[in-house]
Amino acid sequence: MNQRSAIIILIVVGLFAVTLPLYAGPYPQSIGQMVFLYMSLAVSWDMLLRSGQISFGIAGFFGLGAYTSVLTVLDLKLPPLLSILAGGILAGVVALVVGFVVLRLRGMYFAIVTLALAEIFRVIINNWASLTGGPEGKVLSSVIFGGDARLLYWLTLGVAVLTLLMSELFRRTRIHFALTSIRDNEVVASSSGVNITAYLTIAFAVTSALQGITGAAYAQVYGFVAPDGSFSTDFTLLPLAMALLGGVYGSAGPVIGALLLGVASEFLKLYIPYGHRIVYGLVIVVVILFLPRGIAGIVRRKRAPREGGHA
């Protein structure tokens, strides 16, 4: 589809999304909240993937953001909206510090260390009971906006939009060139003047901060944090499945994947209460084996039939 129809679709879908609370009840709105939060995670995961690095640690920064938000509200009396920002900032700063060590790694080493990182964050939060309330977690005395479903919906929509804006920023500025060249060939990128460390750090810190903001919003919307809940592997598994299904290396793919799987997950949870997550694992396996570029990849291929050799 060309530029013009893409913009029209974007406007229509956008309007629909924004105005949903005006004619839909609380249930669709709560589905929307989850979809937007997962969409944000899926998009931010994709943003780092564009540099060639897989992170399995989404849940880690998500949980850090969630805890920061709740703790700053409870202990520092920070206004809830500001606490969401604080969640993002803390996650970003932790990513910078950790990144100093971790960004020296590539490929499987980086990926597994991020997996371990999420677990480490959970263990620290779990054990530092004096600060975090330990395994029981913490509860907010009130949910943000007093629990007004519409405002919660628009908050999560806002988080998703923020992430999408950052994703497009990554796509339309020189960052796109830096990350893509690093992904394709680091050595050549470096001798073309790209400062690999700097750009990987930017990508890692920004995406982690976005994941932190998402976690913080989640905590404010649902009103509690707990080590197992806030650092659940769901927050790594679902975004990955969504981004892969929708198609990686772009904003549209994760959005499509989040819409499809996010809505589907509501029904899955009803019919397969134990182990519905198997579907996400299967989605990942099937996509990798048969459709590595996801749904968006099919669309792109239809658009550009003059392919030569490489897919």
């Binding site: 060139f177 394709d184 073309s192 003047g193």
Partner: peptide
């Protein structure tokens, strides 16, 4: 590279995910 030492590579190593002119742009950008 920024100071002006440039090179090409023995095995063809273009950035496959960028098109031709984008490949060339990388050096100019960075």
């Amino acid at each position: 590279s920024r100071r002006g030492i440039g090179r090409t590579y023995q095995l063809i190593h273009p950035f496959m995910d960028l098109n031709c002119i984008e490949n060339v742009m990388v050096g100019a950008l960075f």
